[in-house]
Design a protein around this nucleic acid. Sequence first.
DNA 1: TAAGCGTCGATTGTCGACAGTTTAATCTTG
DNA 2: CAAGATTAAACTGTCGACAATCGACGCTTA
Lengths: 235, 235
Amino acid sequence: MRLMSPPVGLAALTDTDLVGQVARVLTQAVVTGQLAPGAKVVEAGIARELGISRAPVREAARLLEQQGLLVSHPRRGFFVRKLEIRDIDEIYDLRICVECHAALLAAKNLTPANRAALRKQIDVLHETADLEDHARQVEEDYKFHRMIVEIAGSKRLLKVFDDLSSEMRMVIGLIGRLYDDPHRIAQTHEALLEVLEQGHDDIIAARFDYHIAAAWREVGRLVREIPSSTNGVAP
Amino acid sequence: MRLMSPPVGLAALTDTDLVGQVARVLTQAVVTGQLAPGAKVVEAGIARELGISRAPVREAARLLEQQGLLVSHPRRGFFVRKLEIRDIDEIYDLRICVECHAALLAAKNLTPANRAALRKQIDVLHETADLEDHARQVEEDYKFHRMIVEIAGSKRLLKVFDDLSSEMRMVIGLIGRLYDDPHRIAQTHEALLEVLEQGHDDIIAARFDYHIAAAWREVGRLVREIPSSTNGVAP
DNA sequence: TAAGCGTCGATTGTCGACAGTTTAATCTTG
DNA sequence: CAAGATTAAACTGTCGACAATCGACGCTTA
């Protein structure tokens, strides 16, 4: 006898994931610069503001620490991480390493379905290119890159990418503007997809390497251009 | 007046880093198999055993979760991660990606000092090869690889490597024995160092790729060979 | 007889409290 | 007046407590 209702694809509702929520709030605050680099993150303050106790805040803060957005000095608390030029170099260097590899794997896993998804995302890039919403543009840009890593099919690769992402968002947030013309970015990504579809390892690696390295150069230039006192990036 | 004893270069006895200590204890328990894959990690149990409260235990558990050693099911607690063949493949795939890159960077940063350090570590490998202490041998093996990533000079690269390391230790722990003859391992590493000193990018990458892939194959073989019921590795 | 329903102990998520430490602000003192 | 000592306020690290929830087990019922 079967009385149990059949499994319908409902999203498991985890309304009690306070830690996760706090982590999201904090991440947002950091990448938007609402919490400036070097700023102290007072547990009790955050807790009071969110109407909760300190315990979940502490756990969330540890998460962000592991992600590299916060640093903790024992007995002194958590602080928003200050990025130095050297950090930005590390971030992009690792990103090249990870994303080139992901691209190679993705090319092998490319199916009509996810190929279409990538195409669609490029359309989104074109659409948002005319808007003045820079944050949105950055978001869609990353989404494209993330999709490739997803297609690569390695959870660990994706985790590394995601951790890097928040750091990169922080950097972009500090710069305060895009590192390139949004239309050009959309076109570039179109080219990336083509190369991916082509499927030649050397070309894929070289192309992704170049693409990310270009962003690296631009970001580096822009960061150096802004006085460090105003952006929290030390030389 | 200065009554405080002068700072000695001791391992910064931060006696109040409970979370760190707990994290170390838990990590050890997991990689040694003392906590078997799939086992539930009861917060109160750990806390009582260590004579502390649950708060630090929770924070430590979150750390290990982020590291991939534990998984948390909301409202059900933390469990020791069960590794599947797929995970092992992911781990080694990422390790190749990361370590090859690290090796290239390390070759560029190679100085007489750290070159000597690597040589010395190879000596240690030879010395411990005769011992029957497998755990020690594995440890020294990783130390060599870690040194290379350290020389590469990227904190983020090192972090990725360290996270992977604990997972790899877990795998090795499950297998329960070395994947190769320790003397052969020592020799192989000697060859790696030579290639590193030579300084040709292509050769370095190819050699490290091959070296790690070989371990991957061996580990994969050994894992498959053991009935999954006894080792916690699902197929 | 087996799916579904209470019930009960075990465990998690969260909270408020307290001691000890750090930071700042104020007060000395040469 | 500046450098150091002193005090007060703020904050962290840790704890124990409590309600909410989960899993197991036996009970009901079709």
